[in-house]
C-alpha cells in the first residue's frame, strides 16, 4: 500500500470535561485520517462530540474544565500537541481554520467586518495594516459581499451574510485544513444552499482539505468524499460516501437514514431512532448504542470492536460476528 499524503492524522483522542455534576466523556478514543484535498463529513446527533473533536484539532478546548489526551495529532506534518503557545497562535487561522455553528454570535459586535477579516491577515502575513485592509475587501468580494460594506458592523448583516463574512475570515490566509461546524444549521433553507455552494466553490478554488460537521445527510451527499458517523464520542461507521450511503452497515447509520423524511413517498411515516443519546457522564458498558439498537444482544452490552468490511469501510459493531446477520435497510434496497 502506498504512503498516503495525510493532512490530518489523529489517533485515539479522548476529551473529558470535569464539571461539578461529574465527568462528561465527550470524545472517547476517536481516530481519524484525512488525505490531502479530501472532504470528510462528521455526522451525528447533537451532543455526539463533533464540536469538541473539532476544537481539539485547534487545541481550543477550554482547559479546565476540559482534559484532552491523544496518542497522535498531526496536522499538515505538524505535531500539534507539541506546539508552544506562540506556535499555536501562528498555526491557528493559518494552517487550520474553523467556521463556527452560529453566525449570529461568532462575530465581534464592536468591530467592523473589514477589521475582523484584516486582523487574521495582519497576524499571519507580514504586511502593512492598509494592505491587510485591502486584502480584507478582496476577501469580502470573493464571498459575494460588496467591498464597501467592509466598514459596517456585524449587526448590519443578515445571518447568511454574517456566515459569508465568517467564511471570509476562515479562508483569508488560505488554510490547509478547514473545519466547518454545522455552517448552515442556523440559516434559512434557501440561504443554506447558497452558503453551501459558496463553500464548495472556494474549497475547490483553494484546494482546501475540509471537515464538514453536520447532522444533515443531504449536505454530506453534496460535499463529502468520506464520511465518519459519530456516536457518543467515537466513530461507529466510517467509509467513502458510497460506502455509507449505498452499503450502510451500522445499525445507528441505518437509524439515521430511516429517520429522514422520504420526499418521494409522502405517506411513509417518519422513523426516528428510539430512545435518547446516552448520558455522557455515565456511558453504558460495551457498545454505547446497545440500549437503542434493535439488533443488540447480550454480548453487545459487554464488548465492542472494529470490523473492516472493505479497504475503505469499517464499523464499530459486533453484531456481524453473528451467523447470517445483516441489517434491514439492505433488504429494502
Amino acid at each position: 500500500m502506498k504512503e498516503k499524503d495525510l493532512i490530518l492524522d489523529l489517533q485515539d483522542l479522548y476529551v473529558r470535561f470535569e464539571v461539578e455534576d461529574g465527568v462528561v466523556h465527550a470524545v472517547n478514543g476517536l481516530s481519524l485520517q484525512i488525505e490531502r484535498g479530501k472532504t470528510l463529513g462528521l455526522v451525528g446527533e447533537t451532543g455526539a462530540g463533533k464540536t469538541t473533536t473539532a476544537l481539539s484539532l485547534l487545541r481550543l478546548v477550554s482547559e479546565p474544565p476540559g482534559v484532552v489526551e491523544c496518542e497522535r495529532l498531526i496536522v499538515d506534518g505538524k505535531d500539534v500537541m507539541a506546539l508552544s503557545q506562540k506556535e499555536l497562535e501562528s498555526f491557528r487561522g493559518n494552517d487550520i481554520a474553523m467556521i463556527f455553528q452560529d453566525p449570529m454570535t461568532a462575530l465581534n459586535p464592536v468591530f467592523t467586518v473589514g477589521d475582523q477579516i484584516a486582523e487574521t491577515i495582519a497576524i499571519h502575513e507580514n504586511i502593512s495594516q492598509t494592505e491587510a485592509q485591502k486584502k480584507a475587501i478582496d476577501m469580502l468580494e470573493l464571498v459575494g459581499i460588496q467591498g464597501e460594506r467592509a466598514d459596517e458592523y456585524p449587526h448590519q448583516f443578515s445571518g447568511g451574510m454574517k456566515q459569508r463574512v465568517i467564511i471570509a475570515i476562515a479562508l483569508a490566509c488560505q488554510p490547509r485544513l478547514l473545519i466547518a461546524d454545522e455552517p448552515t444549521t442556523a440559516l434559512d433553507v434557501t440561504i443554506q444552499a447558497q452558503v453551501l455552494n459558496l463553500m464548495r466553490e472556494l474549497r475547490d478554488h483553494y484546494k482546501t482539505s475540509m471537515i464538514m460537521i453536520t447532522h444533515d445527510l443531504g449536505i454530506v451527499a453534496q460535499i463529502c468524499d468520506e464520511v465518519a458517523v459519530v456516536y457518543a464520542g467515537n466513530i461507529v461507521e466510517y467509509g467513502t460516501l458510497q460506502d455509507i450511503f449505498n452499503r450502510t452497515k451500522h445499525p445507528y447509520t441505518e437509524g439515521l437514514f430511516n429517520s429522514l423524511p422520504n420526499i418521494r413517498d409522502r405517506k411513509a411515516e417518519l422513523n426516528p431512532i428510539k430512545g435518547l443519546m446516552p448520558d455522557p457522564t455515565n456511558l453504558p458498558q460495551g457498545c454505547p448504542f446497545h440500549p437503542r439498537c434493535p439488533y443488540a444482544d447480550e454480548k453487545c452490552k459487554e464488548e465492542q470492536s472494529v470490523k473492516w468490511v472493505s479497504d475503505t469501510h469499517y464499523i464499530r459493531c459486533i453484531a456481524y460476528e453473528r451467523e447470517g446477520f445483516h441489517i434491514k435497510l439492505e433488504e429494502k434496497r
Binding site: 503557545q85 497562535e89 501562528s90 493559518n94 463556527f100 461568532a106 497576524i123
Partner: peptide
C-alpha cells in the same frame, strides 16, 4: 463566555490581545 472570543482565538489572536482588545 461569548462565541466571538473563540472566533478570535481560532484566528490565531494571542490570548492577551483576546482579553485586552476583543
Amino acid at each position: 463566555r461569548q462565541d466571538y472570543l473563540r472566533t478570535a482565538r481560532a484566528k490565531g489572536v494571542a490570548e492577551n490581545v483576546v482579553i485586552r482588545k476583543h
